[in-house]
Simulated assay, not measured.
Amino acid sequence: MTCMRLFATGLAAGLVLAATAPAAVQAEDYDFSSWSGLRSTNHTLALQPFFDELKEKSNGEINWILYPGGQLMGARETLGGVRDGVADAGFIAVNFHPSELKHNNVLANMVFDGSDPVAVGGAINETIMLDCPSCDKDWVANNLIYLGGHTTTGYVLMCAEPFDGLEGIKGKKVRATGAFSGILTNMEAVPVNIPPSEMAEGLERGQIDCVLGPIAWLEQYSVMDQIKYVLDVPFGTTRALGLFTMNLDSWNDMSPEHKALMIEGMPGMVARAIGGYISEDERARANGEKKGITFAKPDDAFLAKLADTDPLTKENIATAKSLGVDDAQEIAASFRENLAKWQKIAEQNGHDIDKFEAALKAEIYDKMQF
């Protein structure tokens, strides 16, 4: 029995009990660890409003305490820390854990499939939570349960100094992870795997010349003053970001009523997290232009190199198989099928966050069979 089926059983019971008189439950504090920057919309628009709502709806019985900015654990330490109970839940980036979350990493490395964050976010959550039993087993093996995640807007190249096309990017040290590292290597740049929280220091010390990430990071990670040049074309989007990943023991200790309240609020939390990147991109771009940052379009040669992703897709599957993932092709195919559906949803609804929340509820959270 997978973790999600265990979770579902508890939720089903909770929904029944919630309709009757709730049992008296002692108030409980829960710690949430996030390594996102202090001003991240993951906190201001998604997590903290979710926690406030839970506290109100539970009459104070569910009290989540948010520790942002890596106060408890950094990006690489969060999986082990939440697994071992240092915190009850946390933000876990799948691509920092290629061995522990090897099935999920098939999805995390499909960065070139889909560019609309609403479509990609819906498809990723549906695949992980409904259509990938082996992904679920990764989490269970680490004493975790994945309850909802987000994706970013397009990753663009943001540098301390301008450069001239393919020749100019050669030798540049670029903060990048996962599949993004492969395409930079093909361009003869040098990918450097550091968490976003270390980018400002890396730029300051010359450890990196550029950052590959969403435009929103200019403000979220305080690198606006160090970046002078943005190559304004998306390399792809990061996905399979476990924004709300919970210690399985903490989850199982929750009452059915409290589990039901948690799941009730998840679609809104996920939708607001993804919507936050969209709005933050727009704001950071406007503020960057005011500060004199150059947003430049690449030439045809650069675009052609950027589009040459087929070898990287094959490498993703091969790497997964070398780690013991027997169903890599099936995981990828499931995601692409879900992506096609969610692209239609995104085309119909645009980036309306309320409609996105409703779609997440209808297409994912309401379909969990217990």
Rank of each mutant, 00 (worst) to 15 (best):
A12T: 07
Y229N: 15
A307V: 10
G213A: 13
K137T: 14
G69V: 08
T153K: 13
E219Y: 04
N63M: 00
I353A: 12
L45D: 07
T245V: 15
M266R: 06
A284L: 08
R272D: 03
S58P: 06
L54Y: 07
A8K: 04
G276M: 03
N186E: 14
F91Y: 06
M110G: 08
H43R: 15
K57Y: 04
Q26D: 09
A318G: 04
K172R: 12
I124K: 08
F235Y: 08
I92P: 04
L72H: 09
L241G: 05
L101E: 06
Q48C: 15
I65T: 06
E61A: 07
D29H: 12
D308H: 11
K228G: 07
L203P: 12
K314H: 09
T127W: 03
L339P: 11
T294M: 01
V111Y: 09
V82P: 11
L261R: 13
N186Q: 14
P191R: 09
D209M: 12
A179I: 00
D249M: 11
S33G: 05
N193F: 12
D225Y: 08
W64E: 00
T177A: 09
L79Y: 02
A301L: 13
V223D: 08
D209G: 14
L107K: 10
D326N: 08
L101R: 00
D88N: 15
Q348N: 15
D232C: 10
A260E: 01
K297H: 03
E188F: 06
A273K: 07
M4H: 10
I169F: 08
A12L: 14
S222T: 04
K228M: 04
S181G: 05
W139Q: 12
G14N: 04
C210Q: 06
K137L: 03
A240R: 03
V230W: 03
N104Y: 01
E289F: 01
A307Q: 05
G288E: 05
N105A: 06
N59E: 10
I65A: 13
V120K: 13
P234S: 13
K341I: 14
P49K: 07
G206N: 05
G236R: 02
C3M: 11
D326I: 08
G288N: 00
A21V: 14
G350M: 07
Y229V: 13
K170M: 09
Q329H: 10
R283H: 14
A179D: 02
L166W: 09
D138E: 08
S115P: 03
A216I: 10
N125P: 00
V94A: 14
G14D: 01
A358C: 01
E257W: 02
M4P: 02
A12V: 11
Y229C: 14
G74Q: 08
L17V: 14
D209K: 02
I194K: 09
S255K: 05
A160C: 13
E219T: 15
D352K: 12
D52N: 05
A123P: 11
I62W: 06
R272H: 09
H43S: 09
A93N: 09
V16C: 04
E204N: 09
A19R: 15
E126N: 07
I263Q: 02
L38V: 15
Y30N: 01
T185V: 10
R205L: 13
A123K: 02
